[in-house]
Design a protein around this nucleic acid. Sequence first.
DNA 1: ATGAACTATAAACCTAGGTTTATAGCAACA
DNA 2: TGTTGCTATAAACCTAGGTTTATAGTTCAT
Lengths: 119, 119
Amino acid sequence: MKINDVSKLTGLPISTLRFYERKNLIPDSFVKRDANNYRIYSEEIVEFLDDVKSLLSVDFSIEELSLLVNQQLQLSYEAKKKMVEQKINEIEEIQKRLRKSKKFLLASLEGKANFRTKC
Amino acid sequence: MKINDVSKLTGLPISTLRFYERKNLIPDSFVKRDANNYRIYSEEIVEFLDDVKSLLSVDFSIEELSLLVNQQLQLSYEAKKKMVEQKINEIEEIQKRLRKSKKFLLASLEGKANFRTKC
DNA sequence: ATGAACTATAAACCTAGGTTTATAGCAACA
DNA sequence: TGTTGCTATAAACCTAGGTTTATAGTTCAT
């Protein structure tokens, strides 16, 4: 697959794919170069990028994710476990805030919210 | 209350409080000026800012929120309802992604994740 | 075999959401 | 009464996460 195919399959702009690579977010195992230096991607890149998109959209920075991608194999099980548990705690914090925000929005519709500060 | 009190009660830096005000995120009803042009805040600002923090941390941009804060009173019930429903849909999308991300992280611990692309 | 479409890199640019700096006017306590 | 600390504004600065531009080589359909 060439970069345009990956872009279409993942919905990520070509510029973003190149940008992620510069940021070390794409393991070498997913992308080789052909004789003209064009990137040739393996099919699995699509699923990989879907996970990346999901994680990035939620709570991870590119830097964190790059660390996870590149160092995971070298880390001890305990270290990985710690990393993952901390991240899950952060996610659960966000989940709480989301539930709160939904309530807030619904209340604001009923005119009960804090935003209604006048009248 | 003066700005330093609000900062301490909400955990937001003074510079951020002034920045939010510049961005029209703070309704006039919460802040007046004294004879020296110092900001004097009402007590309710604290709860208001807690909601703002929560919404900003999750899915809203300052601009959107400012719109909600400033135009809410002028909007028709139907318009508000539409706005809130759309936002709730977005939040539910994020909730899905969060659940997916948690699964992904746990799987990565067990060595089942996509990140394990070598070995 | 040539023009439109695709690929590459480096570097400049952009936006949101703040933070820092420079400068100046009050305040509050010893 | 002075000096330490709070307040103010405007403007410059910063970072993450991309996007755009300039320049150049490649490929494919006609």
